Amino acid sequence: MTLAHEASRAPETGKLPRRPQTKRPSRRAAESRAGYAFLAPWLLGFIALTAGPMIASLYLAFTNYHPIRGGEWIGFDNFTRLIDDPRFMDSVEVTLTYAVVGTPIKLAAALGVAMLLNNRRRGKGPYRSMFYAPSLIGASVSIAIVWKAMFNDEGIIDDMGAFFGTWNGGWVGDPGKTMPMMILLAAWQFGAPMVIFLAGLKQIPGELYEAAEVDGAGAWRKFTRITLPMLSPVLFFNLVLETIHSFQIFGSAFIISGGRGGPANSTLFYTLYLYQRGFGQGQLGYAAAMAWLLVIVVGIITLIFFRTSRYWVHYSGEGR
């Protein structure tokens, strides 16, 4: 069909039809392919190292799988057995105590040091590095060994207690002192939340404190009326992260207790007992059930934090 014939068929428009154009790949499609190509290594790693093991563990949670004997599908039996397991209940109690007591102490120490550093005019850099250093090395095996030696019988802490007459005997072998020892180790590693608190304190306008001083507000009133409300988003962030971390404690408990969770199950944290069941006794199905129960519980606690945050977390520019 010729161009003149096409023009004669549409006299009312007075315009010639456009020539058909070959479609070329758009720039956006090319950029998308390049993006997926760069993302491919991460996707492969996520599927092979994260998603795949999660799906496999979910299946194992409903079996009595053993690495040598194999296993079969048993449904929810692993989850019902947890309720009748006294060591499991001990591990839950130990972990909850550690999370409920240790997390606030760690955050309080981090916020207190952050406020001190924020008020300093000189020498902030060295102090920041000094206080942040335990967070870099605190979870290592060597530090856990040193910590155990410090609190063991005839260790430096034992010698100090004997010198002042406050206690005698190591903390490691005393069921009543192992939890305070573990909490002190966690609080000593406050560097990461401290840095986040310090960044949040830098964002609080100084004019608010100046206006409060004009009104005669003291230090405590400025802290409760200005610092905490303005810092509440950062506090919420640290609270969620540190609570999740407290449920994942393993390395220090394993080293200090020698992998047994003693004495008297006082250091039998949830993840340590999971390790004992899965890798010590070969009950991978039971351990997988424990792992997924932990995921569910941590998810529920995190959801509660987010649901209740509307009552105490204040964001700048948000009408309330």
Rank of each mutant, 00 (worst) to 15 (best):
residue 2 T to R: 06
residue 3 L to M: 11
residue 4 A to W: 14
residue 4 A to F: 15
residue 7 A to C: 10
residue 10 A to M: 12
residue 17 P to E: 01
residue 18 R to S: 14
residue 19 R to C: 09
residue 22 T to R: 13
residue 24 R to I: 13
residue 25 P to W: 15
residue 28 R to I: 14
residue 29 A to S: 13
residue 30 A to W: 14
residue 34 A to H: 07
residue 38 F to S: 10
residue 40 A to F: 13
residue 41 P to A: 02
residue 42 W to T: 08
residue 42 W to I: 13
residue 45 G to W: 15
residue 45 G to M: 14
residue 52 G to Q: 10
residue 53 P to G: 07
residue 55 I to K: 07
residue 58 L to S: 05
residue 60 L to N: 04
residue 61 A to V: 00
residue 66 H to K: 13
residue 67 P to T: 05
residue 76 F to V: 04
residue 80 T to R: 15
residue 83 I to C: 15
residue 85 D to Y: 10
residue 85 D to N: 02
residue 86 P to H: 02
residue 89 M to H: 06
residue 89 M to N: 12
residue 97 T to H: 09
residue 98 Y to I: 05
residue 101 V to G: 00
residue 103 T to R: 04
residue 107 L to V: 09
residue 108 A to P: 09
residue 109 A to P: 10
residue 111 L to H: 02
residue 112 G to L: 04
residue 112 G to S: 04
residue 114 A to K: 05
residue 114 A to E: 01
residue 116 L to Q: 05
residue 117 L to S: 00
residue 120 R to I: 11
residue 122 R to W: 13
residue 124 K to H: 03
residue 130 M to A: 06
residue 133 A to D: 07
residue 134 P to S: 09
residue 142 S to I: 15
residue 142 S to R: 14
residue 144 A to Q: 08
residue 146 V to F: 06
residue 146 V to G: 08
residue 147 W to S: 00
residue 150 M to E: 06
residue 154 E to Q: 14
residue 154 E to W: 13
residue 157 I to D: 09
residue 159 D to Q: 12
residue 160 M to Y: 14
residue 160 M to C: 08
residue 161 G to A: 07
residue 166 T to W: 08
residue 169 G to P: 02
residue 169 G to F: 04
residue 170 G to I: 06
residue 171 W to M: 01
residue 174 D to M: 00
residue 174 D to V: 02
residue 175 P to W: 04
residue 185 L to I: 10
residue 186 A to H: 13
residue 187 A to R: 03
residue 189 Q to M: 09
residue 194 M to I: 12
residue 195 V to K: 06
residue 199 A to I: 04
residue 202 K to M: 15
residue 206 G to V: 01
residue 209 Y to A: 01
residue 211 A to W: 01
residue 211 A to P: 08
residue 222 K to I: 02
residue 222 K to Q: 06
residue 229 P to A: 00
residue 230 M to I: 05
residue 232 S to H: 05
residue 234 V to A: 00
residue 236 F to C: 07
residue 238 N to L: 05
residue 238 N to V: 08
residue 248 Q to I: 02
residue 248 Q to P: 09
residue 249 I to N: 08
residue 249 I to K: 04
residue 250 F to K: 03
residue 258 G to L: 03
residue 259 G to W: 08
residue 260 R to Q: 12
residue 260 R to F: 15
residue 262 G to M: 06
residue 262 G to E: 09
residue 266 S to C: 07
residue 267 T to E: 09
residue 272 L to G: 01
residue 272 L to C: 13
residue 275 Y to T: 00
residue 279 F to M: 12
residue 280 G to A: 03
residue 280 G to R: 09
residue 280 G to I: 00
residue 281 Q to S: 13
residue 282 G to K: 07
residue 283 Q to C: 11
residue 284 L to W: 14
residue 284 L to F: 11
residue 286 Y to D: 03
residue 286 Y to I: 01
residue 287 A to C: 07
residue 291 A to F: 02
residue 293 L to Q: 12
residue 295 V to L: 01
residue 295 V to A: 07
residue 299 G to S: 13
residue 300 I to Y: 10
residue 302 T to M: 05
residue 304 I to V: 06
residue 306 F to S: 13
residue 311 Y to E: 15
residue 312 W to N: 01
residue 316 S to I: 12
residue 317 G to P: 08
residue 318 E to T: 10
residue 320 R to L: 11
